[in-house]
């Protein structure tokens, strides 16, 4: 991340952002992974992941965020999340029916438990987070193209 003052907000905002944006991303991943043990889950964690990228974009300008994740990469990853969720659903046919939880359940209150539910949470998190970020990126890039014209 560059600190030139051409784009984005002031130096104070940029310094604070550099300290906090990684923590916000990590908190989103934590919420996604612990969705079957504590409140949260794929939806809330995905939106927090999207908000961390939005935070980066608001503080540093469009170019830095686009260099991290471009619009095409975001929409491709969103499709990948949808395909992952569907393939987890199709995996249930190995046990007999759609959306069957075929992996071992494990002991409750442990991180690696509950069969396919953490995998579904991860795919939903990828899908929601990158999808919402793609929406925001489309809204911002439209404004940029209009100014160039």
């Amino acid at each position: 991340m560059t600190t030139d003052s051409k784009t984005g907000m002031t130096l104070i905002v940029k310094t604070i952002t550099r300290l906090t944006v990684g923590l916000i991303l990590l908190f989103g991943i934590y919420i996604v992974l612990h969705g079957h043990l504590s409140p949260g889950g794929g939806f809330a964690g995905g939106v927090i992941v999207a908000l961390s990228f939005v935070h980066l974009m608001l503080a540093f300008g469009k170019d830095v965020a686009v260099s991290k994740i471009s619009k095409n990469l975001a929409s491709n990853l969103e499709s990948l999340g949808a395909i992952m969720f569907l393939s987890i659903a199709l995996l249930g046919f190995l046990g007999g029916s759609f959306f069957l939880n075929i992996l071992s359940k494990g002991t409750p209150f442990k991180l690696f438990s509950a069969g396919t539910i953490p995998l579904s949470n991860i795919s939903i998190g990828i899908k929601v987070g990158l999808g919402l970020f793609a929406i925001f990126l489309a809204l911002v890039l439209l404004e940029k193209a209009k100014k160039e014209k």
């Binding site: 939806f43 929601v128 999808g131 929406i135 489309a138 809204l139």
Partner: peptide, 20 residues
């Protein structure tokens, strides 16, 4: 309702883009 909240955000973003 948990699914409905996220759907509401998607629908609202779609309507706002049409308004823009």
């Amino acid at each position: 309702v948990l699914t409905s909240i996220v759907i509401g955000l998607g629908v609202m973003a779609l309507v706002i883009s049409i308004a823009i």
